[in-house]
Design a protein around this nucleic acid. Structure first.
Length: 180
DNA sequence: CCCTGATTCGC
DNA sequence: GCGAATCAGG
């Protein structure tokens, strides 16, 4: 039998299909099984795919110096960073709320379900990786955000992303496997 | 915090 | 050819 992680024609075909289908490398890797997302990406590049739904070509990112073997992990902090703490507070809490931009399912207070209180955060505790799903009136003093881990590139967590965008054909984010 | 694809390079 | 390590961006 073929090796589990071997790129047979079958697997390559599936790879092409899924890649052109818009699935992410990790998703494809999970689907194929016994391969990492890096393997998928590597194969994609070798096949000449890459950049499926992106610009024809990136602005030639000067990716110089990338010694993955002898990384300069020793003198990493000769001086460290001079406290790059940019206090971004004190900004106006402009209620520039877009009730209906493209989100028909307005954030009703009724969907507090499945959202534990402990997860809720104020704008003060809101981090970049936290879900910004508004809960309650922005004008209300007890206005809170979901605060759960937000999805990549999205301002909301997985749960609220689904509600917000209501994809015509939802992609099953099956990351249940392939996770050492 | 997590994820994304892109790239390099030892194997 | 392969893919881990690494990078850079979101």
């Amino acid at each position: 039998m073929n090796e589990a992680g071997a790129w047979t024609d079958e697997r390559v075909e599936l790879l092409k299909k899924l890649w052109s289908d818009g699935l992410s490398a990790s998703q494809i890797a999970a689907e194929l099984g016994n391969v990492t997302r890096n393997a998928v990406i590597g194969k994609v590049h070798r096949l000449g795919l890459s950049g499926r739904a992106k610009s024809a070509a990136q602005p030639a990112a000067p990716r110089n110096a990338a010694p993955r073997k002898a990384p300069t992990r020793s003198p990493s902090h000769p001086m460290a960073s001079p406290v790059a703490h940019a206090t971004r507070g004190a900004n106006a809490l402009a209620p520039n709320f877009a009730p209906e931009a493209e989100v028909e399912a307005a954030p009703l207070p009724s969907d507090d379900v499945v959202i534990p209180f402990s997860e809720r955060v104020t704008i003060m505790d809101l981090r970049e990786y936290m879900c910004r799903w508004p809960m309650g009136d922005p004008t209300s003093p007890d206005f809170r955000f979901c605060g759960a881990r937000s999805q990549t590139g999205l301002p909301y967590c997985a749960h609220h992303s689904r509600i917000a965008y209501q994809p015509a054909a939802d992609r099953r984010r099956d990351r249940s496997k392939a996770r050492a």
